[in-house]
Structures are given as structure tokens and as C-alpha cells.
């Protein structure tokens, strides 16, 4: 007797077995276990990691890292917005100046820029307004100022391109609708264009903020007391190199994780009205 269509249509469905996936998962788990084991039996004194995790020098370094990342990012975003608007200007002088800025500061490595700013006194021994006042450049160009300028200015070059892409992503009709309401150029940018451009701008800027947190470690070479510099100072004294590098890595992980969470919140805020069929508030 042959089965009928009705009988076959009522048989139990059995999902396919993914043997390949199981093998791959087993291999990866074995590799992870081997790495974990290596670190456990390796020559790391984990007690030192715990001991130095919250010492004052490391805490000061952590604060300095966060302060530098935030300030350099603020400088970068301000410069980025200004140069992006200049780049899109009809005025060829403004447009090409912005292009030159972006070209120059994107091309020169950040570490090299830090060294240039830090050694500015070699070019200009004093700075100020001629006849009014003048100060020795070495007094102004502290490690903090040199790091802030170096990191902020190169960040501005990258952010300018991000902001430009954001501005160009806004539909032409939005500009026309804003103009039709009688908005001036500045008000149109602030009220209508930028809030929409932010949706495109925030994800890459968030990534760059995370990049900036790590980039501040470059400032250790010009003696700025950020977290890596602090860790190095300690291990120069006690020779616990790996333990202190792990301490620094731990704090970078914490800061970057916190930033990722904040980025998610901001993205959600600027996606207002974007997702169809989402919450209508």
C-alpha cells in the first residue's frame, strides 16, 4: 500500500544535523582553552595585576587618557564641522583650503605629528603677537598641549570627511523646504540638515572616538602621563612588564566598552523618525 499525500504531509519534520559546525565549534573551543591555559601557567604574576590595577599612578593615567581622548575629540569634531562646511562652500579659496588641510593632516602619521608639535620650539623659539607679548614656546608646548593639538588636528581631518559625507547624504529637497520657510543658511544647517546628517555621522565618529582612546597611548612618547605612560613608569621601577601592560589593557577595555554603550544610545536618539513602523513615541 502506498502512502497518500495526506499521510506524507503529516510526518514529523527532523532538522538537518550540522556536523561541520559542531567540528568547527569543538576546534575553536579547544584553541581558546589552550590559550587560556597558556596564560594561566605562563609567567604572569596575576596577583601583581590585581595589586596595581587601582594604584594612584594608574588611576591618574586613566583620568588623563579619558580627558585627552574627550578634549582631542572635541577639537577634532569642531575642526571637522568647520572644514566640512568650508569644503562644501562655493568659495574656491575656502574649499581648497579645507581640501589642503584634509590632505596634509590625513597623510602625516599621528605619532610624527605629536613629535612635530612637541618640538615646535626648534622652529619657533618664542611665540606671541609681535610687539605685544611673547613667551618661550617650550613653556606653552607642554606634553598636554602638544598631544591635544597633534591628536585633535589630525582627527579633524578625518572627521571633516565624515561630516561632509553626512551633509551630502541629506536630500536636496530638505534644503529647498528649509529655504522655502525663509530659513537662513546657518539656521537651516543647525535645525534641519545637521540633525539628519547626524544619523550618518554618529557611527563613524563613534568608531573614531574609540580609536582616539587608543591613539592617546601615542602621547606616552612625548611624556604625557596617560595610562600607558604610567604603566611604563611603574614597570621601569619594578620590572613587572607584562603585568602592568595587562593592567593598562584592562582599563582600555573598560573605557572602550563604556563608549560603545554610549554610542548605541546616541545612535538611537538620532534615528528618530528614521525607522519605518518603529515606536512613534
Amino acid at each position: 500500500m502506498t502512502d497518500t499525500v495526506y499521510q506524507i504531509s503529516h510526518l514529523v519534520h527532523v532538522p538537518r544535523r550540522h556536523y561541520g559546525r559542531m567540528v568547527a565549534a569543538a576546534l575553536v573551543l579547544a584553541a581558546l582553552a589552550a590559550i587560556a591555559h597558556a596564560f594561566v601557567v605562563g609567567q604572569i604574576e596575576w596577583s601583581y595585576v590585581g595589586e596595581f590595577l587601582t594604584v594612584p599612578a594608574i588611576m591618574t593615567g586613566l583620568v588623563n587618557t579619558i580627558v585627552m581622548a574627550i578634549l582631542a575629540m572635541v577639537v577634532g569634531i569642531v575642526l571637522g564641522v568647520v572644514f566640512a562646511i568650508m569644503r562644501l562652500s562655493d568659495n574656491p579659496v575656502l574649499s581648497y583650503t579645507a581640501l589642503g588641510y584634509i590632505w596634509l593632516f590625513r597623510a602625516v602619521p599621528a605619532l610624527l605629528q605629536l613629535l612635530l608639535w612637541f618640538n615646535l620650539a626648534l622652529i619657533f623659539p618664542t611665540m606671541g603677537i609681535p610687539g605685544l607679548f611673547s613667551v618661550p614656546t617650550v613653556e606653552v608646548m607642554t606634553p598636554f598641549v602638544a598631544a591635544l593639538l597633534g591628536l585633535g588636528i589630525q582627527q579633524g581631518a578625518f572627521t571633516a570627511e565624515v561630516v561632509r559625507a553626512g551633509l551630502l547624504s541629506v536630500d536636496r529637497g530638505q534644503y529647498e523646504a528649509a529655504q522655502t520657510l525663509g530659513m537662513t543658511r546657518l539656521k537651516m544647517l543647525r535645525r534641519i540638515i545637521m540633525p539628519q546628517a547626524m544619523r550618518v555621522i554618529i557611527p563613524p565618529v563613534g568608531n573614531e572616538f574609540i580609536g582616539m582612546v587608543k591613539l592617546t597611548s601615542l602621547a606616552s612618547v612625548i611624556q604625557y602621563a596617560e595610562i600607558l605612560h604610567s604603566a611604563q613608569n611603574i614597570y621601569y621601577a619594578n620590572s613587572r612588564v607584562i603585568e602592568l601592560l595587562i593592567v593598562a589593557a584592562f582599563w582600555y577595555l573598560i573605557v572602550v566598552t563604556a563608549l560603545s554603550l554610549i554610542q548605541g544610545r546616541i545612535e538611537k536618539y538620532y534615528s528618530k523618525g528614521a525607522a519605518p513602523a518603529a515606536d512613534t513615541k
Binding site: G173, A177, A274
Partner: peptide, 21 residues
Amino acid sequence: ARQRRRIGMVFQRFNLFPHLT
């Protein structure tokens, strides 16, 4: 901009501001 205030315009593609209710 001042002259445009007294002239309203309605577009083919609506051009409402998507980030505002």
C-alpha cells in the same frame, strides 16, 4: 530668506523634515 517667508511652497516629493513629527 525674508522675502521667502510670505511665499509658501508645496513640493512634488513633500519634503517633510523626517526627524520631526
